[in-house]
């Protein structure tokens, strides 16, 4: 059974006014326990609406959202519980920090869950460790941290709730390559350790190619594709028609294929590209470090 699922979900904005707009139309998507799913689509494709649907910040105008096979809106009063199970890290989450210390800020979610102080302490420390925040930073004010540290503290605040589904909306936006790599690596490691289901929304195909098992492509409010990462990039023309770019290595191999070189069409990282090209270039199997 799928862990989280949307069935024929439609979301409209400004219903009943002349400005009515369909943000999502008839979206049915199944996500399994422990998957790492990349969500991609350009601005206005419905990405943000889709993820807000999953944790009950948006209510579908029609259709149902199922968590463990149960409609999350069955008991509208219990929607907060759904939000603890489906954690959401918004874009630029560092702008939501508010407490006096980093510790208290990370503890905000667990506190709202009504956990014991001891449990909270354990969770805050574990979450801080997972995002790579040194323990001595916990006593500091969140506003004294560097940009990258603030971002990681905010992510820890959601991780500390130990959600079964962790959604991150563009967690690397505006960071430099170092900050970006750090966050992607930490999230990937966390996901593998806890078998949490992760949805990562991003504009960057390169980022998604690096971390995701499957990729959901949204286009004009519909789910256009949901495919394993390896096969996604073989649909270059389709992706480009939706205004999405594929990683440069994928384009290189595609053009080589067009010229008649026998290379596979599902390569999307530089290391893999080198791995498939080397035997052809040197006529033997060579290890690439």
């Amino acid at each position: 059974m799928a862990l989280i699922e949307t069935r024929n979900c439609t979301v409209r904005y400004s219903s009943g006014t002349p400005f009515e707009k369909e943000a999502l139309s008839d979206v049915s998507v199944c996500i399994e326990e422990g998957e790492f799913v990349g969500v991609i689509g350009h601005t206005g494709s419905g990405k943000s609406s889709f993820v807000q649907l999953l944790n009950g910040l948006l209510k579908p105008d029609s259709g149902t959202v199922l968590l463990d096979g149960r409609d999350i809106w069955e008991q509208p009063k219990d929607i907060r519980r759904v939000r603890f199970e489906v954690g959401m890290v918004f874009q630029y989450p560092e702008y939501q920090l508010f407490e006096e210390t980093v510790y208290k800020d990370i503890a905000f979610g667990p506190q709202n869950m009504g956990l014991s102080d001891e449990e909270i302490r354990e969770r805050v420390h574990t979450a801080a460790k997972w995002v790579g925040l040194k323990p001595e930073l916990l006593a500091k004010s969140p506003f004294e941290l560097s940009g990258g540290e603030k971002r990681r503290a905010a992510i820890a605040g959601v991780m500390a709730m130990r959600p079964r589904v962790l959604i991150l909306d563009e967690p690397t936006a505006g960071l430099d390559p170092r900050g970006r790599d750090m966050i992607l690596n930490r999230i990937r490691a966390y996901q593998q350790e806890f078998h949490t289901t992760v949805l990562l929304v991003s504009h960057s195909m390169e980022d998604i190619a690096r971390v995701a098992d499957r990729v959901l492509v949204l286009n004009r409010g519909s789910a256009a594709m949901l495919e394993p990462t390896e096969t996604l990039f073989s649909h270059v023309t389709q992706l480009e028609s939706m205004g999405l770019s594929v990683p440069a290595v994928t384009r290189i191999l595609l053009k080589l294929r067009e010229r008649g070189v026998a290379v596979p069409d599902h390569v999307y990282t530089v290391e893999d590209a080198a791995r498939v090209l080397l035997p052809l270039l040197k006529g033997g199997d060579i290890h690439v470090g």
């Binding site: 939000r83 979610g109 709202n112």
Partner: peptide, 16 residues
């Protein structure tokens, strides 16, 4: 707009 965003984010952390 910003207030809307912050409210959504804190609600996601269980703010009542």
């Amino acid at each position: 707009e910003e207030t809307d965003k912050i409210m959504a984010a804190q609600k996601a952390r269980g703010a009542d």
